[in-house]
């Protein structure tokens, strides 16, 4: 089958049982997406399919033929970090870092789509990304910062 990941087309042979997460990590070497629970609970494996956050562990790779996949490796410009990645570092929005790529994939989509006006909205949207280190206040702070910076650059602040 062929799969387009971060703009690159890959030809791979996979059993239908293989999850998108295993295909990315074990077959394409894209290990930024993490395997936490492998049952759709923790959000560590969050990637985008057709631009929307989904759980790669509950997605079958074979069902992604002709779909556009975006992983954490695909969101930053070639020469640096995505603003959300920078904000996560600045705000110490992780301790162990295992959930971070999933958190960022959700956060970038949230900021892109809007709906992060209040902390409650942020918490609700991000509730599918569990952080066992409980860095939640810092994650929200990072998201707020990028939200407010976006508002300033777009002249809406």
């Amino acid at each position: 089958m062929s799969m387009r990941v971060n703009g690159d087309l890959h030809e791979i042979g996979l059993e239908p049982r293989v999850s998108l997460l295993d295909a990315l990590r074990d077959h394409l070497g894209l290990t930024g997406s993490k395997k936490g629970c492998d049952q759709g609970t923790c959000g560590a494996c969050t990637v985008w399919v057709q631009g929307r956050p989904v759980l790669a562990c509950l997605t079958l790779a074979v069902a992604c033929e002709d779909r556009e996949i975006t992983t954490i490796e695909g969101i930053a410009p070639a020469d640096g970090l995505h603003p959300v990645q920078r904000a996560f570092i600045e705000h110490d929005a992780f301790q162990c870092g295992y959930c971070t790529s999933g958190q960022i994939m959700s956060a970038v989509a949230l900021l892109r789509d809007g709906g992060a006006e209040t902390d409650d909205e942020i918490a609700e949207y991000m509730s599918g990304n569990i952080c066992r280190c409980a860095a939640y206040p810092n994650i929200r702070a990072a998201i707020r910062e990028v939200r407010d910076a976006d508002l300033e650059t777009s002249g809406r602040a």
């Binding site: 929307r52 956050p53 989904v54 989509a109 949230l110 949207y125 991000m126 599918g128 990304n129």
Partner: peptide
């Protein structure tokens, strides 16, 4: 119901 990721799926 569910999380944003699950709702998208």
């Amino acid at each position: 119901g569910a999380s944003e990721q699950l709702r998208n799926m």
